[in-house]
Simulated scan of single mutants.
Amino acid sequence: MNAPFPIRKECPPGACTCGREALLDDPQSDMRILRLTREEEKRLIARLESLSSLAELKDMEKRMHAQLGIVVTITPSIHEVRTVRGINIQVEEQTGLCRKTKQAIPAAIRRCLEAKPDIAYAILDAHDLLGGA
C-alpha cells in the first residue's frame, strides 16, 4: 500500500509487536500513527522534554491525540507522591504504536517534570493534592 505521506519503517522481526502490517493491510484502519517516523519521533521527544508549563503539556497531549491518535494520561499516584516517579504517565495501547515509542513518551515527560518541578506541582494542584497550599 502506498500512503500519501511518509510512514514509519518496520521494526526488526520479533523486536516489536506494534501490528504495523495489520494496520497497512486494513484500508479502513486509522493510519495516523504511521506518520510518526523515527525522525518525527525524535522531534516529538525533544519537544516533550522542553515543555515549560502545564498548559503546554496539555496542548501537546491534545495535539498528539489529534494528529497521531496517541492518548496520554497523566495522573498522580494513589499513594504518596514524593518524586516525579509518583506521577503515573500512561500511553494507551494502539495498533501501530511501536513499543519503544510507547516507552519513550513517558520517559521524556518524566525528564521534563524533573527539570521543571513547577509542572509537576501544577499536575498535583490540578488534582487537588496540594489542597491550595
Rank of each mutant, 00 (worst) to 15 (best):
R43T: 12
K62D: 14
L48G: 01
Q28C: 11
R38F: 07
E49L: 05
L34M: 13
D25K: 11
M31E: 11
C16S: 03
D26V: 00
D26T: 03
C18Y: 06
L54D: 04
M60D: 07
L36A: 01
Q28R: 10
D59G: 12
A46M: 13
L44K: 02
L34R: 00
I33W: 00
C16L: 02
E61L: 12
E10D: 15
D25P: 07
P27L: 06
A46D: 15
D26H: 01
P12K: 12
E61D: 12
I45M: 06
L48K: 00
L57K: 00
D25Q: 15
L24E: 14
R43V: 13
A22K: 13
D59M: 13
L44N: 01
E56P: 05
S53H: 03
D59Q: 15
S53V: 05
L57H: 00
G14W: 06
I45F: 04
A22D: 15
R47E: 15
R63L: 14
L57F: 03
E61A: 12
G14T: 05
K62A: 15
S53N: 03
E41I: 02
T17E: 12
R63P: 08
E49S: 07
L24D: 08
L54N: 02
L48R: 00
P12I: 09
A46P: 09
K58F: 06
L54H: 09
T17L: 06
I33V: 13
E49H: 09
M60N: 07
R35V: 06
E56Q: 11
D59F: 13
L34D: 04
P13E: 10
D30P: 08
R43I: 12
L34V: 08
S50I: 04
C18M: 05
S29A: 15
A15D: 14
A22I: 06
E41F: 05
L36S: 00
A46W: 11
G14V: 05
K42T: 14
S29D: 09
L51F: 01
R38G: 09
E40D: 12
A15R: 09
L57C: 02
C18Q: 03
M60T: 07
K42M: 10
E56I: 02
L54M: 06
P27I: 06
S29K: 02
P13C: 03
R20A: 06
R47M: 13
A46K: 14
E56K: 05
R43K: 14
K62M: 13
L36T: 00
E21H: 09
E41C: 10
C18P: 05
M60Q: 13
G19W: 05
C11R: 10
R35Q: 14
E40A: 10
A15P: 04
R47G: 11
R20V: 05
A15H: 11
E61N: 10
E56C: 03
K42P: 05
S50G: 10
L51Y: 01
P12S: 14
S50W: 10
R32C: 08
E49W: 01
L44S: 02
S29T: 03
L51V: 02
A22F: 12
L48Q: 00
P13Y: 01
D30C: 07
L48W: 00
R32M: 07
A55Y: 07
Q28D: 12
A15I: 07
A55D: 11
R43M: 12
S53P: 02
I45R: 05
K58N: 11
L44P: 00
R35A: 07
R32L: 04
E61F: 08
K62E: 15
S53Q: 05
A46Q: 14
P27G: 03
T17F: 08
I45P: 03
I45G: 04
R20P: 09
R32P: 06
